[in-house]
Design a protein around this nucleic acid. Sequence first.
DNA 1: TTGAAAGCGCTAACAG
DNA 2: CTGTTAGCGCTTTCAA
Lengths: 342, 342
Amino acid sequence: MRSKQITLNDIASKLNVSSVTVSKALRGHPDISKETTKLVKQTAAELGYSPNFMARNLSSRKSNMIGLVVPKIAHHFFSSLIENVYACAFENNYEIILTVSQEDAELEKKHIQTLLSMRVDGIIISISQSTKDFEIFKKIMEREVPIVFMDRIPNLPGCNTVTVDDRGGAYNVINHAINLGYKKIAHFAGKSSTNIGIERIFGFKQAMNDHGLEVNPGWIIEGEFGERHGYDSFMKLYKEKNLPDLIFAVTYPVALGIYMAAREVGVKIPADIDVVCFGNSQVQSFLSPPLSCVNQPTDQLAYRSMELLMERIDDKEINETKHIVLDTNLILRGTCVKFNKG
Amino acid sequence: MRSKQITLNDIASKLNVSSVTVSKALRGHPDISKETTKLVKQTAAELGYSPNFMARNLSSRKSNMIGLVVPKIAHHFFSSLIENVYACAFENNYEIILTVSQEDAELEKKHIQTLLSMRVDGIIISISQSTKDFEIFKKIMEREVPIVFMDRIPNLPGCNTVTVDDRGGAYNVINHAINLGYKKIAHFAGKSSTNIGIERIFGFKQAMNDHGLEVNPGWIIEGEFGERHGYDSFMKLYKEKNLPDLIFAVTYPVALGIYMAAREVGVKIPADIDVVCFGNSQVQSFLSPPLSCVNQPTDQLAYRSMELLMERIDDKEINETKHIVLDTNLILRGTCVKFNKG
DNA sequence: TTGAAAGCGCTAACAG
DNA sequence: CTGTTAGCGCTTTCAA
């Protein structure tokens, strides 16, 4: 197969010049005359030349590739994030090597090793919910491969992060709810081993406290970020006959799980119980009822992460660590807009 | 940065053996004694050796990378497809290089060139809706880089394809609807420049014909695959006071656009007008009303495509072209289950 | 069982 | 402006 691949030498010998000349011409190096450059480019096109990135990267010691590690792909938050990272990378002439950890720490580690082996110029990562061992991140940082943590970050000093103001977002939505009249509020929370889990719980509690409301410990239920958590936790409270007036779901899928469970047992949203969640998605306005949420600026998350990473790739000498925190905003739709009970 | 990277030579000199020995040992080559192998692996681990894939690929002329080109990523159909391709690739020790064409033929072409430059071992592609020039695909096939077309395929002889039975799926759902009593049925169709557009239209027409129903030309509206098409087309018919009893949407996003428009003008689904679409998504059951659809087996699409591609990578001599067509199934939820009008 | 030599395709540094 | 030399880190003969 590779026998058919055209190389610099093929072009060079056809034109009776050296391969170096061809190499330079193809890259538009000012060394080479307009004439030659034009001629070279022309024959390259004719021959269907396709530069071998492997070889190029090997000798130039730059790959123009950025590794991206995410926990999931088939969720709106991440697919939107990914799409934006790709867009920004493309604008800046980088290739993205995307890997998916499936929320599994082991897999994540393997992927990182692969990326390192591919000699990516830098890495952007949203860590999995099960990642507890941060040794590998330390190693990467020691190796001086720039890395930026995006949204899901480890509790590790000295690393560059781009996150959303999870605490503030949670605070705002709960504050809004309380002002509406809600008092019995539950939080189907993320694991407190994750930053987003902790921060959202913190914002929730703080809002409750600021209003002098008691936090029922049974109403903070930690779990994973998927539908299952929402479904199971709702069912648990339902069976205990211990449903609150409002549930604040840590993610959109968790809210979906709540919708599912509520429908199953005939509990009406928002008449009997109300729901709001962290994380937006296009289809939320089509749910019944349309789901209100705390909106995360996924485009900003992606672009700022890329910019920060590129900054570090371009200048390895910078030692300060940056923590970019982005604002959220509340999107009110059919839930969490009116208190329905006496 | 690269100065810190450990190479085969570093390990070799530390152990007073040649780099060849190390190379072989690391790959578990039977040439090398158990002892040496063990020793080598151990020191490699100690030193934090990370093999340089660029170099490896360059000299072995195999990249173990597969290029994947899709039109979109933030849509359930594609993200699910991608996730499954990744899973299958991982099981088979391949890396996926994912690129997103954004439904743009030019971008798609660039991405393909990049993949070729990366010397991927093969390519899986779902072509964009605007791809009209198939020259590049011919070139790839001439170059003997295996390529498999998945779901969105070009009208090009001699290429390997894995698709869903679009025609049959469309036929079945319309047949079901007609049996229910629907007669005035519209199809918000895909562009007839795409295979899935054509096939779904064909299945639609055939079902109508088989039941002796007339196809109103104004009720087949071609367009793109996004929300916009659904919204605009609905509004068009609404303003013309020419709404049918049932709309068959070519994709799930198109159906979503219909929901949006219908709500805006106060047309009730399914009481006033009913909707059904091609393509499933987890959230459809949470829509109001839950949306019925023709389900595509994304896992099968992905796995069969990967298998076919790997087959061609492993044996370049095979000349026959394969066309794998997968069955769909109807998922009935809150729409298209009962005819509501006299 | 090990290693020396050659080369994958390209680029960087330097000479001409 | 163009070319020579050297080498990126690895694997593949082939000889020892």
